[in-house]
Design a protein around this nucleic acid. Sequence first.
DNA 1: CTTCTTTTGGAAAACGTTTTCTGAAAACGT
DNA 2: ACGTTTTCAGAAAACGTTTTCCAAAAGAAG
Lengths: 334, 334
Amino acid sequence: MVSIRDVAKEAGVAISTVSKVLNNYPNVRGETKERVNRAIEQLGFVPNSIASALSSKRSGRVALVLDVNRNAQAVDEIPMQYMIGAINRAKELGMDIITVFAAMLSDMSAEEMTRYFQSQSVEALIVCSLSRTEDEALCKMVKSGNFKTVLINAPGVDENTSSIHIDNQKAQYEVAKTFLTESTAFCTSKRILYIAGKKEGYVSGERLKGMQKLAQEMELSLLVRVGNFSELEARKLTMQYAPHKDAIICASDLMAIGAMKALIDMDIYRPVCGFDGTNLMGYAGKQMHTVGQDFKRTAACAVEEAGRLIGGEAGREIIMPHKLMRIKYLDVIS
Amino acid sequence: MVSIRDVAKEAGVAISTVSKVLNNYPNVRGETKERVNRAIEQLGFVPNSIASALSSKRSGRVALVLDVNRNAQAVDEIPMQYMIGAINRAKELGMDIITVFAAMLSDMSAEEMTRYFQSQSVEALIVCSLSRTEDEALCKMVKSGNFKTVLINAPGVDENTSSIHIDNQKAQYEVAKTFLTESTAFCTSKRILYIAGKKEGYVSGERLKGMQKLAQEMELSLLVRVGNFSELEARKLTMQYAPHKDAIICASDLMAIGAMKALIDMDIYRPVCGFDGTNLMGYAGKQMHTVGQDFKRTAACAVEEAGRLIGGEAGREIIMPHKLMRIKYLDVIS
DNA sequence: CTTCTTTTGGAAAACGTTTTCTGAAAACGT
DNA sequence: ACGTTTTCAGAAAACGTTTTCCAAAAGAAG
């Protein structure tokens, strides 16, 4: 393996000079820089990131913690989008992503997690959908402040912690409003079944608030039931309540699919509204109102934010944009 | 940060002794080991993997190269399964996975890739679905022998390269046979539309061979068309040919979904057979014969195999088991 | 042509491990 | 009790960088 030493010798300069060239230090003369670069080229030198990390104490490593497989039956599109967004941006910024599935951490204490991430020389965490009740140890670790953390879809900003999410309340309000206006214009009574996410849980709560605000404004008769983001649960709830309702609004696309399947089974029609804008809808083959989120961009932002935190800046809250969509069969298929 | 030095001092032993304890060297007395472990516990020492990697020249890093997003519209379930399988197994084995998307490499030359992986201190590659025609540079890099490589779903075993896949030919033969026997028992003429994967491509070729073998045996009238693993393409082909056929067999579930959608559009019924056993089928809401593969297990094996190769053992071919499935609506939903 | 800055390049000490080599002590055989 | 082997522990040299500090050279000002 050709090292910085070899380059230095070849170029007839000191090791430190080569290092300076590699890291774009200002105080190297143009001519010297050229000479070094020629040597690098000639020897095919490629810097060893491990040595660099050790020496500089900056690993550039960020752990992306995903809640994959908490609902085993889901096609895990959203985490995949997060990954793609994060990894691509990290590469651009010269950072490294190590992917961690929440399930891998579930049997660790906060201390064990800390040790694990320390041993991996992780400088920051990006945690998706942290749940106060389901990820107790992880929560504790984040709060400990041992690591800079970016929370996606969870609240909790402090010196070391940033939070990134869309305005869930507003998004739910808007999509439901548009949906109801367009879908139920014809019917006089507005009896709505709202299938919420989790009982406790930040995004679920926000979305519910948005829905409730709209219900008040539009004088809806709103029945709220918790679907736990589960397709099956939503399906059951729809079976049970839909016959006496005029429309169904769900806090996620996955649950909306469950609702639609139930409607098909019962052979009745009710308009359904989703949330997330996943491709999955295309496979269900239905048209639906939903909220579109750019998960890749969110993750890319999270990586940048992690960099900012590592750089010593304080945590903050970032609100990502959302958009209202009406997914049609053909949008996805062709 | 507490280092091995501090532990050594606390335990009253030499640094090297601590290292030996950490790495389970045999020649450390039980009592000494105890003393060191106590010190480790007391100081909360956690070994620095970067320093370890630098010193030992073993990073334990494996790059997992996924072909995500080559077909942009697909819900990327299979790559996700690979990731989960690989990352979990890697953690068990004390290895590290860095995930790389083929798209990130597409504008690099073989030399640039080599440099990239070298700079990342990658010791081995796991490459999924390498295509001779679409991944020219990557192919070249693999062939160069600069890295130990495990190919998933691609051929090419040599000293540094192992290959893991199911017996695609046999699987296609079996599933098609069962499917035809059960689905078209009633009809006398057996006109089959086979929607193959890619024109060139290892798994596609194998599956086609299996299909052709069966066609000969069962005296089928077999029309082969290439669907490029695209849902849309399969849909078009089905539109065009299905009316004059008795059954449709596809080289992937995704294409089978396309075929089914076309049949729905045309409002005709034809039995459809898929391949892969993805959850996606559940969202399409249909029953179908398909081939089940355990992608997680395959990826886990690939990680182990990467370890073997790094350990200096020669490449080999590993055939994973497959199973015949008939996915039903309820299998997935409930 | 001094003297004082400013630029530039080098020497060497880190960074936290692993590993090799060496020697002391202990165990063994006779 | 004496060599001989085996077991155990420590000293020190790596591993490939970064970074700090210092000196030499070059430029500016007088």
